[in-house]
């Protein structure tokens, strides 16, 4: 029987990818962010998950505005990152898990979600940067990927509740999967940041701390704001917290925070990395 071992929630700023490419992990500007991955590396070494289900948003690599899915689930045997316009392409391929992808698709459609399904799909920095952070180096990635893209680019965005409920449906699908894999769930993006307009550079630490304090024990607290209210509170890119909400929804057990790192700023972003363990509820009788 499969097991959802935990969740890794992290910022995915392209600048992190550039810092990795330039070997700046120990640079004083970057070190406080990269150091937040020490407990993640220890946990991954101990748990050795087989599969990563990644909730993220595409920023114009795979999807253009001609066809913009609200939710899209990858079902490819392999995914790749490519040049997003600034010449950096991570070389390691991402092995897929099409059987699990189709199981998730079947289950979430049975739960009345209507995702786009993608048998061929590029994944952008929102997948590649978290992978590079978790498994640095040049070895083949040790996990198979199921990417789930959420539209956080073009309004109207899905509501926070809808994203959380999608995550719940994915969590149920993972629980009903007959395989023996150990699974880790990712939510990428955030926290507060805004790239465009006269409010560029906007940071809201109060809202960030509200998210960090509640996403584990009380994620429903984040559902009280609608997506545009989150844009106001977190910045127009801070709304990527929707990916975190979906990932949190997929952790259906007893969720315990193992580590959290909040560091401001990297590039224009209030960055965060959180590691959760997902413990199965204790049964009432043997």
């Amino acid at each position: 029987m499969s097991q959802v071992a935990g969740g890794i929630f992290t910022s995915h700023v392209p600048g992190i990818g550039n810092a990795i490419a330039r070997g700046l992990q120990k640079d004083p500007y970057w070190k406080p962010f990269f150091d937040g991955f020490d407990p993640v590396h220890e946990w991954l070494a101990k748990e050795k998950p087989d599969v990563a289900v990644v909730f993220y948003n595409d920023h114009g690599l795979n999807f253009f505005l001609d066809k913009m899915p609200t939710f899209a689930i990858g079902a490819a045997a392999e995914y790749r990152h490519e040049d997003e316009g600034w010449g950096l392409a991570f070389q390691r391929p991402f092995a897929g898990h099409p059987e699990l992808s189709w199981h998730i698709i079947e289950q979430v459609v049975a739960s009345e979600f209507d995702p786009v399904t993608c048998q061929s799909m590029l994944v952008d920095h929102a997948v590649a940067v978290p992978y590079e952070l978790c498994w640095p180096g040049t070895e083949e990635f040790p996990v198979k990927l199921v990417p789930i893209a959420i539209n956080t680019v073009q309004h109207p965005l899905p509501s926070p509740k809808r994203c959380f409920d999608l995550g719940r449906a994915v969590g149920r699908a993972l629980k009903s999967w007959k395989g023996s894999e150990k699974i880790v769930v990712f939510g990428t993006g955030g926290l507060s940041h805004q790239l465009e307009g006269k409010r560029a550079g906007f940071i809201n630490k109060e809202y960030d701390h509200f998210c960090l304090d509640n996403i584990g024990p009380n994620p429903e607290a984040l559902l009280r704001h609608d997506s545009l209210e989150i844009v106001e509170l977190a910045g127009s890119q801070g709304v990527e917290i929707l990916n975190w909400l979906a990932a949190r929804g997929a952790l259906t057990g007893d969720v315990v925070e193992l580590a959290s790192n909040y560091h401001v700023p990297i590039s224009n972003t209030a960055a965060a990395t959180v590691l959760f363990e997902n413990r199965e509820f204790l049964p009432a009788s043997a």
Partner: peptide
């Protein structure tokens, strides 16, 4: 602009 971002500077870490 960079200084404005750095004015928010904070590193907060929690570990179980």
């Amino acid at each position: 602009f960079k200084a404005a971002l750095l004015s928010h500077g904070e590193t907060t870490r929690r570990a179980a």
